[in-house]
Design a binder for these strands. Structure first.
Lengths: 172, 172
DNA sequence: GACATAACCAACCGCAGTGGTAGGATATGG
DNA sequence: CCATATCCTACCACTGCGGTTGGTTATGTC
């Protein structure tokens, strides 16, 4: 797995906040109830978003959270990074020195180590996809799809899921 | 961390095999010594590559491993998938049904869930970067950067990368 | 001022996966 | 027969993840 549930919960939380008007704060409990997530755990998640300056908060009765900036000014890269830390495909990307034999990568950005060239490309692919998606986009998407369709949505689209990427090698 | 050390070790192993001539098999021990990796653990790693049909093997004395196909015909996506399993940004991508409350994603390829839209894009970014990189590219890269001066004249290099491999075999 | 609400904070804990070891069984060349 | 080397299974210490517990502060309302 690439991202932990912190990212899933945190992104959902941000989308929820994006759906609300920024005038009045939304309590965590409301979000936890709406999404069916454990409140106490959400507290830890939202703490990361707050420390990253992505949401603001008000304590006390009728307190809660709201977006620090308009949703179309928030790239998902910021959100995911606040929740998961820096995007590192491989161990040596986070401690790129002082590491044991696992990694002989030199801190020269891909030169000198063929595997680091690969991981650098992977990282770039991830970051680009996260940079080019804004929170507003996801909020707008959730508006379209969350309205209960009275019309019978054509259940099976011709474009089938891409979730199974290729064939699974490890069989029996 | 996105990828575990299995991926790092496995990719290095594949690069090593790509550097060798495919006529004669290379023993795991030679690779383990060259890269400074635990032999017993490498066995588990290479087993995955073998089961995926990426390398072939010969048992017994003078046995070893070699690439099943030419290096320019092996996309790194195949290698990484054999080592790490399917690329799944989020839990629900691997068990996209029968899952608990964590994920309310419906199996409809991104429709109905804004977060899944995001994860699908991330997955696509990763897969694209892995698909467009071939093993031959990494092998060629390692040739350029790992080129050890054939003349031992100025052989005073203090800490030459531990990835200095094949050139270190005049003893045989 | 009491009280409910709700953000904030710091431990703690079970569980599963990672990284690696141990010890062998099997096949092959000399 | 023996050294080499693949192949296979079980085992284990450690870490991080997902989550809970139990508070403390701060703030609106009655």
């Amino acid at each position: 797995m690439i991202f932990s549930s912190k990212a899933e919960y945190g992104v959902r939380l941000m989308i929820e906040l994006g759906r609300q008007s920024p005038e009045q704060p939304t309590s965590l409990k409301a979000i936890a109830d709406a999404e069916g997530l454990p409140l106490a755990y959400l507290e830890q998640v939202v703490a990361r978003l707050r420390k990253a300056g992505l949401v603001m908060s008000a304590r006390g009765a009728h307190g809660g959270y709201w977006l620090a900036r308009p949703a179309d000014d928030i790239a998902m890269h910021e959100v995911v990074q606040a929740l998961e830390g820096a995007i590192a495909p491989m161990e040596c990307f986070v401690h790129d020195h002082t590491e044991r034999v696992l990694c002989s990568h030199e801190p020269d950005a891909g030169r000198g180590c063929a595997t680091k060239l690969l991981w650098t490309r992977v990282q770039a692919g991830i970051v680009r996809s996260l940079q080019t998606t804004t929170l507003a986009e996801l909020v707008e998407f959730s508006h379209r799809t969350n309205r209960v369709p009275a019309t019978p949505a054509g259940a099976q689209a011709p474009v089938v899921s891409t979730t199974a990427v290729g064939a699974q090698a490890p069989a029996a």
